[in-house]
Structure formats: C-alpha cells, structure tokens
Design a protein around this nucleic acid. Sequence first.
DNA 1: GTCTATAAAGCGATAGAC
DNA 2: GTCTATCGCTTTATAGAC
Lengths: 201, 201
Amino acid sequence: MSARPRFREQFLQAREDAIVASVNRLLAEKGFEAMTVDEVVADVGIAKASLYKHFTSKEELAAAAMVRVLDRTLEELARLRSLDLDALGRLKAVARWAYEQQIAGEMPALPSQNSTLRATLVADKAYMDRLMQLSDELGAWIVQAQGQGHLDPALPPELVLYTLFARACDPVLGVMRASGAHSDAQIVDWLVTSCFRGLGA
Amino acid sequence: MSARPRFREQFLQAREDAIVASVNRLLAEKGFEAMTVDEVVADVGIAKASLYKHFTSKEELAAAAMVRVLDRTLEELARLRSLDLDALGRLKAVARWAYEQQIAGEMPALPSQNSTLRATLVADKAYMDRLMQLSDELGAWIVQAQGQGHLDPALPPELVLYTLFARACDPVLGVMRASGAHSDAQIVDWLVTSCFRGLGA
DNA sequence: GTCTATAAAGCGATAGAC
DNA sequence: GTCTATCGCTTTATAGAC
C-alpha cells in the first residue's frame, strides 16, 4: 500500500480484470473441471506463476469469475428497477438478459452439486453476499408477481427462483442455436415464453 | 468364442453390468470429467487393468452407460405405449419417469457440448441408433400432441424434444430436494406441471 | 510482480506374471 | 481375464532469479 503509484494499481487491476474475463468465458465454454489454468494464462498472455500471485487456487479463480457474473446481474436488476415495468415484466426481462449473456458466451454453467468448487463458493463471503442479495431481490419480485396473479401462487417462491437460475444456463438454447434453423431472437422468445407460461397462473 | 462355457459368459456379462451400473451412478453424481476410473474400479471391486479388458477407454465406458440409460428409456416408452394414454399423457409420464430416475441417482448429466465424450458418443453407432429411435418416438408423440392442441403448435417439435431431454437432468430437482422442505412426489408434480404448462397451448 | 523451470500429485492407460 | 506394479502424460501449484 505505497502512497503514490496509482498507475501501477490501475495496471494490476486491469490485469486482474483481464484474467477474470478470460476465466468467465472459459467457464461458460467448457465448465470448471475441463478448464485448465494453462489455458487461462495462455489466453491472457501471462505466466502461470503470475496468475497465482493474484489468485491462490483454481477454485478461487473461478469464484472471482462467478462474483463478476453476480455483480453484472445485480447491475442489470438495478437498471430494470429504474424502468416502468411490473414484477413479472422485470423477471421476464432479467431472464431474457440471462439468455443473451449465454449467447455471448458470458454465462458460466451452474457449479455441479459435488464439485470442489462448491466448497470454495459457499465459504466465499463476497460470492455468498451477492448470491443472497440477488436471491432476495428476485424473491421479492416473484412474491409480488404471485400476489398480482401473474405467477402461480401455488408454486413455492424458491422453486421459481431456482428455475430462473437453472434456465439462465439452459442447455436447450445452445442445442437450438447449433441446429441453425432459427434466429437467436426467435429462440430466446420461445424459451422465455415457455418458461414463464410454465410458471404462470 | 469357445463352444461350451456359458457359465463363464454369464459371469463376465454380470461383471460388465456391474461396471456399467457403477459408471451410471457416478456419472449422475459427479459428471464425466469429475468421475475417475479409479473410483469406478474401487466401487466395483476390481483392478483397473481388468476394467480395461472390457472397455478400451474412459469415454467408451461412459458411452456404455449412456446406452444403458437409453435402453431403459426405450423400454419405458414401450411400456407406456401399452397403456391407455393419449400423446400428452405419455409425454408427461415419461417426464415423470425421468425425474424419478434422477432421484434414484440413475440419470447421468447431459454431455456438455465441448466434451471429449461427445466425440465418442457421436461416433458410437449403438448410442446414436438408440438416440435417434428415442427422438423419433418422442417426436411422433410431440407432433401428435400438437395436432390435438395439447402442446403449442407454434413451438418447433425439436425445441420441445430438447426441452424434455434437458428437463430429465433439471438441476432444480436436486436443489429443491436438498432444501428438504417438500416431499419428492410434490416436487416432481410441480416440475412436471410447470414444464408442460410452459409447452402447452 | 513477472518470469523460467520444476516440483508434486492425479489420472488414463499398459506391461507382464499368473 | 485378473491381478500388481508402473509408465507417461497432464495439471495444479511453487521455488527462485530478476
């Protein structure tokens, strides 16, 4: 923590951002187990030992990328709050946004239940704080939409929440895109529509 | 191919079945990348070299397990065909059956798009034949249900098919079960209902 | 902090005796 | 075919010079 060198701090921050962005894409592309640290450093263009000065393990590296995703999601929620939409409209908009993130290759797969990654994530305060904040905010919209009769009140709000999380990584999007028979916009429309029709009253 | 020893053949077949069953469970539990051959042989109680006399690679091992799942699914389809159900009823029944398989720890995760496993699977005739047969039979029911107005005719049948495949591995089931707040039967009901309400007209 | 070089461990696959 | 023992490679992580 020297007094002067802001340049250096900014440079290091930019490098960390580059690392996390690369990890984010690789996580979306191949998942945590298949992603290797060598690929990350090759992609960023640094030495492996340098990466380990910033992050102490592969798990922590992935956790940083997950935190980044949650941050961007929370930003999107804040943006949506400023728009003139009801609760259901906001939920649909965030689902659509998530699908677009997946198309852009920016949406990492959900960490599988028994991964070594999960242990790191649940122990990571930055990750858990953001996850809980996101759950709280989405949960409020869900309850609100249920109260307005726009979502089925018989479904537990947690089930609706988990369904939205799961659909953000829905493999159906990738398979449909790979078939090449329909436009991305058309596919996203179908998926958002059928998802919310299923959760609807 | 000696003439006499049927005992031995049966014994070997039983051992192969034990291996494949173990692989099936491990695939469901941790996925292909996280599963190790050492775990498999430890679970079955044989030496690693013995396993490699039956299967030439880890990928082929997983492929055999996937073939087993497809076979059991095709059997279930045959059973459902003998029942007095319309197309939608059959599709719902097979979805419910898939969820129950997942609860029993018998439903492996979908092979991720960029896995080394995928290359083996698409080159495996036994796997591809069964996958196509399954797709054809389910596809026929889907088109039929759309014609009867029980499924949304605006959705491409392939999207409906892929959605059913994806929901068979839906992570929402596992998360909801882990919360412990609801019975398995109740959770499955909610998931089947919301899935088909989403695909409905 | 960044690099080159390497340690340490895990993993898929095989050799060779029985 | 099954076993023990081991190979050969990949991968995570670190040592040590600059």
